[in-house]
Amino acid sequence: MATVTMPPSEEARTVFKRLGYAIDEEEMQFIAERKWRRVLVTPMCESDVESPERLLEGEDTTDYPRLRCFVTWKQSAETLLTYLRSAKPPYDWAIIGVDRDGDFEVVYPHSWA
């Protein structure tokens, strides 16, 4: 299925714009800002979610914002949630599941957006 093989980059941008965040970068991974929040947003396709350690291990997080949000397709969100809970990364994080129709769901934490 084509939707899961590509990271939901445009969908991630749309979600954060709808939530009132300013977005400057045109890279796949981007910073979203609103009020006091600076969030590093990382879109992830299904294959990224199946092996997230290759994307997340060894990261130097000193230059990143304290808040991270991983945006993936809805059907992959629970797999990513399981991984991040066990990995316990050294930053605050959230997961948003999206679909092609523009619908999204904050999977974790439920009240963070």
Rank of each mutant, 00 (worst) to 15 (best):
M6G: 05
L80V: 00
T14G: 12
P7Q: 05
W36A: 15
V15C: 09
Y64D: 11
S51C: 07
M1D: 12
D48N: 13
Y83C: 03
T72Q: 07
P43Q: 11
R18Y: 07
A32M: 08
S51L: 06
F104G: 05
Y83N: 08
G97W: 03
T42V: 09
L56S: 03
Y83D: 04
G20H: 04
Q75C: 07
F104I: 04
T79R: 12
C45W: 00
G58C: 03
I31M: 07
Q29R: 15
G20R: 05
E78W: 02
E27S: 15
V49F: 02
V4C: 10
E25Y: 00
A87M: 11
H110T: 09
T82W: 01
A22C: 01
E46L: 11
V49T: 05
R34F: 04
E10W: 08
A77H: 07
R68N: 07
A12T: 01
D99V: 00
V15E: 09
D24M: 08
R54Y: 02
V49S: 01
D99P: 01
E26Y: 04
T42C: 01
E78N: 07
P8A: 02
L67Q: 13
E25Q: 07
F16S: 03
G102K: 11
E10A: 12
V39H: 06
S111N: 13
D60P: 04
M44F: 00
T5E: 15
D99G: 00
L56C: 00
K88M: 12
D103N: 15
S76V: 09
Y108K: 04
L80C: 01
S76I: 08
R66A: 15
W112V: 14
L56N: 01
E59A: 10
S47Y: 10
T5G: 13
D101I: 03
P65Q: 12
E10R: 11
A22R: 09
L40D: 11
L40C: 10
T5F: 14
V4T: 12
A113N: 05
M28D: 14
Y21H: 13
V106G: 07
L67F: 11
K74G: 04
V41R: 06
A113S: 05
D103F: 13
T61N: 11
A22E: 10
T5M: 15
K88D: 13
A22H: 02
L55A: 09
W36C: 15
A22P: 00
T79G: 10
A12D: 05
T72Y: 02
C45N: 14
K88S: 14
Y108H: 14
V15M: 06
V71M: 04
K35F: 10
P43H: 11
T14Y: 15
G58W: 01
F16N: 02
P109V: 06
P89E: 07
K35V: 01
K74F: 09
W36N: 15
L55Y: 06
E25I: 00
P109K: 07
S51W: 05
W73V: 10
C69W: 07
S76C: 09
R85E: 06
I95W: 01
R100L: 14
G20T: 02
M1I: 08
Y108W: 13
D60M: 02
L81Q: 12
A87V: 01
P43V: 09
P65F: 10
R18G: 06
K17Y: 03
R68Q: 12
R100Y: 11
M44S: 01
P8S: 02
R37P: 02
P7W: 04
V71K: 06
G97S: 08
A32E: 11
D92G: 05
V15F: 05
C69S: 14
K74A: 13
G20D: 08
S76L: 08
F16M: 09
